[in-house]
Simulated assay, not measured.
Amino acid sequence: MKRLVTSALAMACAALAAPSQAQFAKAEDAVKYRQSAMFIQSQNVARLGAMASGRAPYDAAVAVANAEVVAQISRLPWAGFAPGTEGGKAKSEIWREQAKFKELSERLMADADKLLVAAKAGSVDALKAAMGPLGETCKSCHDTFRNR
């Protein structure tokens, strides 16, 4: 799992080095890219949420593994929101309210980093405390910038 995430992160970093118009051959590719990153992120957040809420047994090692993925993946979807990549469930407000979108994306990355620190603490209580702000950030961004 770590190798896959590391490879994906390396590819994303390489893609970020290219001009945004060169990153994706078609707007649909950008949409698929960002949706894929968000899907992977949501699956790992859901596992952490299940442990934090008691719906799944708490396993410190699994929590760390999932939090590592969330922290790394949280940096990826933003390249898929370049100008000319409108579509999918993204509202047009993303491209009109770039400052707010950027602020929420940065907050998500910071919350994901804090989640990883909490997971490494090895305490379900620390995990619970970090899940709240992350969930609030996700909700705030989706409420503002995502069509249902």
Rank of each mutant, 00 (worst) to 15 (best):
A46W: 02
A46M: 13
A46C: 07
G49V: 05
G49H: 01
A50M: 14
M51N: 01
M51T: 03
M51V: 06
A52W: 00
S53I: 11
G54R: 05
G54K: 06
G54N: 09
A56R: 11
P57N: 04
Y58W: 10
Y58K: 08
D59K: 07
D59T: 12
D59Q: 12
A60F: 09
A61T: 13
A61G: 10
V62I: 14
V62M: 13
V62A: 15
A63F: 03
A63T: 06
V64N: 10
V64H: 07
V64C: 12
A65C: 07
A65F: 04
A65L: 10
N66V: 10
N66C: 14
A67K: 05
A67M: 11
A67G: 11
A67E: 11
A67D: 10
A67Y: 05
E68I: 12
E68W: 00
E68F: 01
V70N: 00
V70E: 00
I73L: 06
I73Q: 01
S74D: 11
S74Y: 04
S74P: 07
S74N: 09
R75N: 13
L76H: 05
L76V: 15
P77Y: 00
W78K: 05
W78Q: 07
W78S: 04
W78Y: 12
W78T: 09
W78M: 11
A79S: 08
A79K: 02
G80W: 00
G80T: 06
G80C: 08
G80N: 04
G80D: 05
F81L: 15
F81K: 04
F81I: 08
F81S: 09
P83I: 02
P83S: 01
T85G: 08
E86D: 03
E86G: 01
G87H: 01
G88S: 08
G88H: 03
K89Y: 09
K89N: 13
K89S: 14
K89I: 15
A90M: 00
K91Q: 06
K91I: 03
S92R: 07
S92V: 13
S92C: 03
S92F: 07
E93T: 13
I94D: 00
W95D: 00
W95Q: 00
W95T: 00
R96D: 14
R96C: 10
R96P: 02
E97R: 07
E97D: 14
Q98K: 12
Q98R: 12
K100V: 15
F101V: 05
K102C: 04
K102S: 13
K102P: 02
E103Y: 05
L104G: 11
L104H: 10
L104W: 09
L104S: 13
L104Y: 09
S105V: 15
S105C: 12
S105T: 15
E106P: 00
R107C: 11
R107D: 15
R107W: 06
L108P: 03
L108D: 08
L108C: 10
M109A: 13
D111W: 01
A112D: 07
